[in-house]
Design a binder for these strands. Sequence first.
DNA 1: TTCAATTAGTGGCATATGCCACTTTTGCCG
DNA 2: CGGCAAAAGTGGCATATGCCACTAATTGAA
Lengths: 154, 154
Amino acid sequence: MTEAHKPGFSDCNNATLRRAARSLGRFYDDALAPTGLKSTQFGLLFQIHISDEPAMGTIAEALIMDLSALGHTLKPLIRDGYVETFPDKDDRRVKRVRLTPQGEAKLDEALKLWGVAQQQFEDKVGAEQAAKLRAALDAVADLDLEMPTAASSN
Amino acid sequence: MTEAHKPGFSDCNNATLRRAARSLGRFYDDALAPTGLKSTQFGLLFQIHISDEPAMGTIAEALIMDLSALGHTLKPLIRDGYVETFPDKDDRRVKRVRLTPQGEAKLDEALKLWGVAQQQFEDKVGAEQAAKLRAALDAVADLDLEMPTAASSN
DNA sequence: TTCAATTAGTGGCATATGCCACTTTTGCCG
DNA sequence: CGGCAAAAGTGGCATATGCCACTAATTGAA
Protein backbone atom coordinates (compact mmCIF):
# COMPACT_ATOMS: atom_id res chain seq x y z
CA MET A 1 0.00 0.00 0.00
CA THR A 2 1.01 3.58 0.05
CA GLU A 3 3.73 4.62 2.39
CA ALA A 4 1.31 5.84 5.00
CA HIS A 5 2.32 9.20 6.29
CA LYS A 6 2.81 9.80 9.97
CA PRO A 7 0.29 7.63 11.72
CA GLY A 8 0.01 9.56 14.91
CA PHE A 9 -3.44 10.79 15.71
CA SER A 10 -4.29 10.41 12.05
CA ASP A 11 -5.35 6.80 12.37
CA CYS A 12 -7.59 7.00 15.39
CA ASN A 13 -10.98 8.35 14.49
CA ASN A 14 -11.55 9.43 18.03
CA ALA A 15 -8.22 11.19 18.46
CA THR A 16 -8.67 12.99 15.17
CA LEU A 17 -12.13 14.08 16.19
CA ARG A 18 -10.96 15.39 19.55
CA ARG A 19 -8.07 17.22 18.00
CA ALA A 20 -10.38 18.97 15.56
CA ALA A 21 -12.78 19.72 18.40
CA ARG A 22 -10.04 21.38 20.43
CA SER A 23 -8.99 23.45 17.45
CA LEU A 24 -12.43 24.55 16.38
CA GLY A 25 -13.54 24.99 19.96
CA ARG A 26 -10.83 27.53 20.50
CA PHE A 27 -11.92 29.47 17.46
CA TYR A 28 -15.54 29.65 18.51
CA ASP A 29 -14.55 30.34 22.09
CA ASP A 30 -12.49 33.30 20.96
CA ALA A 31 -15.37 34.57 18.89
CA LEU A 32 -17.76 34.36 21.84
CA ALA A 33 -15.29 35.63 24.40
CA PRO A 34 -16.74 39.17 24.42
CA THR A 35 -20.01 37.72 25.72
CA GLY A 36 -18.30 35.86 28.54
CA LEU A 37 -19.77 32.61 27.27
CA LYS A 38 -17.87 29.53 26.18
CA SER A 39 -18.96 27.92 22.95
CA THR A 40 -20.27 24.99 24.95
CA GLN A 41 -22.43 27.25 27.05
CA PHE A 42 -23.66 29.01 23.98
CA GLY A 43 -24.65 25.68 22.48
CA LEU A 44 -26.43 24.70 25.65
CA LEU A 45 -28.35 27.98 25.85
CA PHE A 46 -29.34 27.58 22.23
CA GLN A 47 -30.54 24.04 22.75
CA ILE A 48 -32.68 25.16 25.66
CA HIS A 49 -33.93 28.09 23.64
CA ILE A 50 -35.18 25.98 20.75
CA SER A 51 -36.73 23.40 23.03
CA ASP A 52 -39.92 23.85 24.95
CA GLU A 53 -38.91 23.95 28.58
CA PRO A 54 -37.11 20.64 28.19
CA ALA A 55 -36.43 18.24 31.02
CA MET A 56 -32.78 17.77 31.85
CA GLY A 57 -32.85 14.25 30.55
CA THR A 58 -34.24 15.45 27.26
CA ILE A 59 -31.44 17.95 26.81
CA ALA A 60 -28.81 15.41 27.76
CA GLU A 61 -30.19 13.00 25.22
CA ALA A 62 -30.30 15.58 22.45
CA LEU A 63 -26.72 16.64 23.08
CA ILE A 64 -25.59 13.08 23.74
CA MET A 65 -24.11 14.00 27.03
CA ASP A 66 -24.17 12.47 30.46
CA LEU A 67 -27.05 13.68 32.59
CA SER A 68 -24.79 14.51 35.49
CA ALA A 69 -22.40 16.32 33.17
CA LEU A 70 -25.29 18.43 32.00
CA GLY A 71 -26.17 19.21 35.58
CA HIS A 72 -22.64 20.37 36.23
CA THR A 73 -22.46 22.43 33.07
CA LEU A 74 -25.75 24.07 33.88
CA LYS A 75 -24.59 25.33 37.26
CA PRO A 76 -22.53 28.32 36.15
CA LEU A 77 -25.34 29.35 33.81
CA ILE A 78 -27.86 29.21 36.61
CA ARG A 79 -25.48 31.02 38.93
CA ASP A 80 -25.08 33.78 36.35
CA GLY A 81 -28.83 34.07 35.95
CA TYR A 82 -29.12 32.90 32.36
CA VAL A 83 -31.04 29.74 33.10
CA GLU A 84 -33.57 28.62 35.67
CA THR A 85 -35.14 25.32 36.50
CA PHE A 86 -38.53 24.31 37.82
CA PRO A 87 -40.22 21.02 38.62
CA ASP A 88 -42.51 19.33 36.15
CA LYS A 89 -46.17 19.62 37.04
CA ASP A 90 -46.94 15.93 36.72
CA ASP A 91 -43.70 14.21 37.65
CA ARG A 92 -41.82 15.71 40.52
CA ARG A 93 -38.70 13.77 39.62
CA VAL A 94 -38.43 15.77 36.42
CA LYS A 95 -36.69 19.12 36.46
CA ARG A 96 -37.41 21.37 33.52
CA VAL A 97 -35.16 24.09 32.23
CA ARG A 98 -35.74 27.46 30.61
CA LEU A 99 -33.82 30.62 29.78
CA THR A 100 -34.39 33.69 31.90
CA PRO A 101 -34.94 37.02 30.15
CA GLN A 102 -31.25 37.74 30.69
CA GLY A 103 -30.49 34.36 29.22
CA GLU A 104 -32.46 35.18 26.10
CA ALA A 105 -30.71 38.53 25.85
CA LYS A 106 -27.32 36.96 26.30
CA LEU A 107 -28.14 34.38 23.66
CA ASP A 108 -29.12 37.09 21.21
CA GLU A 109 -25.89 38.85 21.90
CA ALA A 110 -23.91 35.66 21.43
CA LEU A 111 -25.76 34.70 18.27
CA LYS A 112 -24.37 37.74 16.51
CA LEU A 113 -20.79 36.85 17.33
CA TRP A 114 -21.45 33.20 16.61
CA GLY A 115 -22.69 34.18 13.18
CA VAL A 116 -19.42 35.89 12.41
CA ALA A 117 -17.41 32.86 13.44
CA GLN A 118 -19.71 30.49 11.62
CA GLN A 119 -19.48 32.61 8.48
CA GLN A 120 -15.74 32.78 8.81
CA PHE A 121 -15.59 29.02 9.01
CA GLU A 122 -17.88 28.44 6.09
CA ASP A 123 -15.97 30.92 3.99
CA LYS A 124 -12.91 28.81 4.54
CA VAL A 125 -14.32 25.34 3.97
CA GLY A 126 -17.38 26.20 1.91
CA ALA A 127 -20.96 26.05 3.07
CA GLU A 128 -21.50 22.91 1.07
CA GLN A 129 -18.57 21.11 2.62
CA ALA A 130 -19.46 22.33 6.07
CA ALA A 131 -22.98 20.98 5.71
CA LYS A 132 -21.63 17.64 4.57
CA LEU A 133 -19.23 17.52 7.45
CA ARG A 134 -21.98 18.25 9.95
CA ALA A 135 -24.12 15.55 8.39
CA ALA A 136 -21.26 13.09 8.65
CA LEU A 137 -20.64 14.05 12.25
CA ASP A 138 -24.30 13.72 13.14
CA ALA A 139 -24.28 10.30 11.53
CA VAL A 140 -21.26 9.29 13.55
CA ALA A 141 -22.76 10.65 16.73
CA ASP A 142 -25.94 8.68 16.18
CA LEU A 143 -24.20 5.43 15.33
CA ASP A 144 -25.17 2.58 17.55
CA LEU A 145 -21.66 1.48 18.37
CA GLU A 146 -21.16 -1.40 20.66
CA MET A 147 -18.23 -3.41 21.75
CA PRO A 148 -18.53 -6.94 20.32
CA THR A 149 -17.22 -9.52 22.76
CA ALA A 150 -16.67 -7.49 25.85
CA ALA A 151 -13.53 -8.68 27.60
CA SER A 152 -12.97 -12.15 29.07
CA SER A 153 -10.64 -13.08 26.22
CA ASN A 154 -7.23 -14.77 26.52
CA MET B 1 -44.39 21.41 10.31
CA THR B 2 -42.96 21.48 13.72
CA GLU B 3 -39.33 22.31 13.88
CA ALA B 4 -36.79 21.37 16.47
CA HIS B 5 -36.99 17.62 16.25
CA LYS B 6 -33.76 16.99 14.45
CA PRO B 7 -31.05 14.91 16.04
CA GLY B 8 -28.56 17.74 15.98
CA PHE B 9 -29.96 21.04 17.07
CA SER B 10 -28.24 23.77 15.23
CA ASP B 11 -26.07 24.42 12.27
CA CYS B 12 -23.17 25.18 14.51
CA ASN B 13 -20.15 23.33 13.22
CA ASN B 14 -18.54 23.48 16.60
CA ALA B 15 -21.53 22.14 18.51
CA THR B 16 -21.95 19.33 16.02
CA LEU B 17 -18.30 18.45 16.33
CA ARG B 18 -18.40 18.40 20.12
CA ARG B 19 -21.51 16.30 20.14
CA ALA B 20 -19.90 13.73 17.89
CA ALA B 21 -16.77 13.84 20.01
CA ARG B 22 -18.74 13.08 23.17
CA SER B 23 -20.47 10.22 21.47
CA LEU B 24 -17.42 8.64 19.91
CA GLY B 25 -15.34 9.36 22.97
CA ARG B 26 -17.64 7.27 25.06
CA PHE B 27 -17.34 4.40 22.66
CA TYR B 28 -13.57 4.40 22.64
CA ASP B 29 -13.48 4.99 26.37
CA ASP B 30 -15.62 1.94 26.93
CA ALA B 31 -13.37 -0.09 24.68
CA LEU B 32 -10.27 0.96 26.58
CA ALA B 33 -11.85 0.75 30.01
CA PRO B 34 -10.27 -2.64 30.79
CA THR B 35 -6.86 -1.00 30.58
CA GLY B 36 -7.79 1.75 32.98
CA LEU B 37 -6.91 4.33 30.34
CA LYS B 38 -9.16 6.98 28.88
CA SER B 39 -9.14 7.35 25.11
CA THR B 40 -7.47 10.71 25.57
CA GLN B 41 -4.69 9.19 27.61
CA PHE B 42 -4.28 6.44 25.08
CA GLY B 43 -3.94 9.03 22.35
CA LEU B 44 -1.37 10.92 24.35
CA LEU B 45 0.69 7.82 25.11
CA PHE B 46 0.59 6.92 21.44
CA GLN B 47 1.70 10.36 20.37
CA ILE B 48 4.62 10.20 22.75
CA HIS B 49 5.42 6.69 21.57
CA ILE B 50 5.70 7.64 17.92
CA SER B 51 7.69 10.76 18.67
CA ASP B 52 11.32 10.82 19.65
CA GLU B 53 11.38 12.02 23.22
CA PRO B 54 9.38 15.08 22.27
CA ALA B 55 9.41 18.32 24.20
CA MET B 56 6.11 19.20 25.82
CA GLY B 57 5.61 22.08 23.46
CA THR B 58 6.08 19.77 20.50
CA ILE B 59 3.41 17.41 21.72
CA ALA B 60 1.03 20.24 22.48
CA GLU B 61 1.50 21.59 19.00
CA ALA B 62 0.96 18.23 17.34
CA LEU B 63 -2.23 17.61 19.26
CA ILE B 64 -3.30 21.23 19.00
CA MET B 65 -3.75 21.55 22.69
CA ASP B 66 -2.79 24.14 25.23
CA LEU B 67 0.63 23.55 26.74
CA SER B 68 -0.68 23.88 30.25
CA ALA B 69 -3.52 21.52 29.45
CA LEU B 70 -0.98 18.99 28.29
CA GLY B 71 0.91 19.41 31.52
CA HIS B 72 -2.23 18.72 33.50
CA THR B 73 -3.19 15.74 31.39
CA LEU B 74 0.26 14.30 31.74
CA LYS B 75 0.17 14.30 35.52
CA PRO B 76 -1.96 11.22 36.10
CA LEU B 77 0.11 9.33 33.55
CA ILE B 78 3.32 10.28 35.33
CA ARG B 79 1.79 9.47 38.67
CA ASP B 80 0.82 6.03 37.40
CA GLY B 81 4.30 5.45 36.06
CA TYR B 82 3.53 5.34 32.36
CA VAL B 83 5.41 8.45 31.44
CA GLU B 84 8.49 10.26 32.66
CA THR B 85 10.07 13.56 31.86
CA PHE B 86 13.62 14.81 31.76
CA PRO B 87 15.30 18.10 30.91
CA ASP B 88 16.71 18.77 27.49
CA LYS B 89 20.48 18.65 27.40
CA ASP B 90 20.93 21.97 25.65
CA ASP B 91 17.99 24.03 26.76
CA ARG B 92 17.06 23.75 30.39
CA ARG B 93 13.70 25.35 29.77
CA VAL B 94 12.68 22.38 27.67
CA LYS B 95 11.21 19.32 29.30
CA ARG B 96 11.19 16.19 27.21
CA VAL B 97 8.83 13.29 27.61
CA ARG B 98 9.09 9.55 27.09
CA LEU B 99 7.18 6.40 27.96
CA THR B 100 8.47 4.18 30.73
CA PRO B 101 8.66 0.43 30.10
CA GLN B 102 5.33 0.11 31.89
CA GLY B 103 4.02 2.84 29.66
CA GLU B 104 5.07 0.92 26.56
CA ALA B 105 3.48 -2.23 27.94
CA LYS B 106 0.28 -0.44 28.78
CA LEU B 107 0.19 1.08 25.33
CA ASP B 108 0.59 -2.35 23.73
CA GLU B 109 -2.22 -3.63 25.86
CA ALA B 110 -4.42 -0.69 24.92
CA LEU B 111 -3.58 -0.92 21.23
CA LYS B 112 -5.26 -4.30 21.06
CA LEU B 113 -8.51 -3.01 22.50
CA TRP B 114 -8.26 0.16 20.46
CA GLY B 115 -7.97 -1.96 17.34
CA VAL B 116 -11.24 -3.67 18.13
CA ALA B 117 -13.05 -0.39 18.61
CA GLN B 118 -11.46 1.14 15.56
CA GLN B 119 -12.45 -1.88 13.49
CA GLN B 120 -15.95 -1.77 14.89
CA PHE B 121 -16.23 1.84 13.88
CA GLU B 122 -14.89 1.30 10.40
CA ASP B 123 -17.17 -1.65 9.88
CA LYS B 124 -20.07 0.67 10.53
CA VAL B 125 -19.06 3.66 8.48
CA GLY B 126 -16.69 2.05 6.03
CA ALA B 127 -12.93 2.41 6.02
CA GLU B 128 -13.15 4.65 3.01
CA GLN B 129 -15.60 7.01 4.65
CA ALA B 130 -13.70 6.96 7.91
CA ALA B 131 -10.51 7.96 6.14
CA LYS B 132 -12.31 10.78 4.39
CA LEU B 133 -13.80 11.95 7.63
CA ARG B 134 -10.42 11.98 9.33
CA ALA B 135 -8.96 13.89 6.42
CA ALA B 136 -11.74 16.43 6.65
CA LEU B 137 -11.25 16.75 10.39
CA ASP B 138 -7.52 17.19 10.02
CA ALA B 139 -8.16 19.87 7.45
CA VAL B 140 -10.54 21.64 9.81
CA ALA B 141 -8.12 21.35 12.68
CA ASP B 142 -5.33 22.85 10.63
CA LEU B 143 -7.40 25.73 9.29
CA ASP B 144 -5.95 29.09 10.08
CA LEU B 145 -9.12 30.61 11.44
CA GLU B 146 -9.00 34.10 12.73
CA MET B 147 -11.61 36.48 13.98
CA PRO B 148 -11.77 39.44 11.58
CA THR B 149 -12.25 42.02 14.32
CA ALA B 150 -9.29 41.54 16.60
CA ALA B 151 -7.12 40.16 13.84
CA SER B 152 -3.89 42.05 13.74
CA SER B 153 -0.56 40.49 12.98
CA ASN B 154 -0.08 36.80 12.55
C1' DT C 1 -52.32 -0.84 49.43
C1' DT C 2 -47.45 -2.12 50.00
C1' DC C 3 -43.05 -2.98 48.22
C1' DA C 4 -39.49 -3.97 44.62
C1' DA C 5 -37.81 -2.12 40.28
C1' DT C 6 -37.30 1.83 37.44
C1' DT C 7 -36.56 6.64 36.36
C1' DA C 8 -34.62 11.41 37.00
C1' DG C 9 -31.41 14.03 39.27
C1' DT C 10 -27.61 15.17 42.64
C1' DG C 11 -22.98 15.08 44.60
C1' DG C 12 -18.47 13.52 44.85
C1' DC C 13 -14.33 12.31 42.50
C1' DA C 14 -11.28 12.31 38.52
C1' DT C 15 -9.72 13.59 34.08
C1' DA C 16 -9.77 17.04 30.04
C1' DT C 17 -8.79 21.72 28.59
C1' DG C 18 -8.06 26.67 28.51
C1' DC C 19 -6.47 31.17 30.11
C1' DC C 20 -3.61 34.00 32.85
C1' DA C 21 0.10 35.27 35.85
C1' DC C 22 4.54 33.92 37.10
C1' DT C 23 9.46 31.92 37.09
C1' DT C 24 13.41 30.26 34.80
C1' DT C 25 16.25 30.17 30.73
C1' DT C 26 17.76 31.78 26.50
C1' DG C 27 18.79 35.07 23.02
C1' DC C 28 19.69 39.36 21.29
C1' DC C 29 21.42 44.01 21.31
C1' DG C 30 23.41 48.18 22.38
C1' DC D 1 28.60 42.49 29.70
C1' DG D 2 23.98 43.91 31.35
C1' DG D 3 19.37 44.06 30.72
C1' DC D 4 15.09 43.21 28.40
C1' DA D 5 12.03 40.44 25.32
C1' DA D 6 10.82 35.84 23.95
C1' DA D 7 10.31 30.97 24.87
C1' DA D 8 8.91 26.89 27.75
C1' DG D 9 6.74 25.30 31.65
C1' DT D 10 4.13 25.51 36.16
C1' DG D 11 0.22 26.48 39.15
C1' DG D 12 -4.09 28.25 40.12
C1' DC D 13 -8.76 28.86 38.75
C1' DA D 14 -12.81 27.65 36.03
C1' DT D 15 -15.52 25.04 32.92
C1' DA D 16 -16.45 20.41 30.44
C1' DT D 17 -17.58 15.57 30.98
C1' DG D 18 -18.02 10.94 32.77
C1' DC D 19 -18.90 7.32 36.16
C1' DC D 20 -20.64 5.74 40.42
C1' DA D 21 -23.29 5.71 44.56
C1' DC D 22 -27.41 7.71 46.48
C1' DT D 23 -31.96 9.88 47.09
C1' DA D 24 -36.56 10.93 45.75
C1' DA D 25 -40.60 10.03 43.03
C1' DT D 26 -43.15 6.76 40.02
C1' DT D 27 -44.76 2.65 38.31
C1' DG D 28 -46.01 -2.01 38.31
C1' DA D 29 -47.27 -5.92 40.39
C1' DA D 30 -48.84 -9.13 44.15
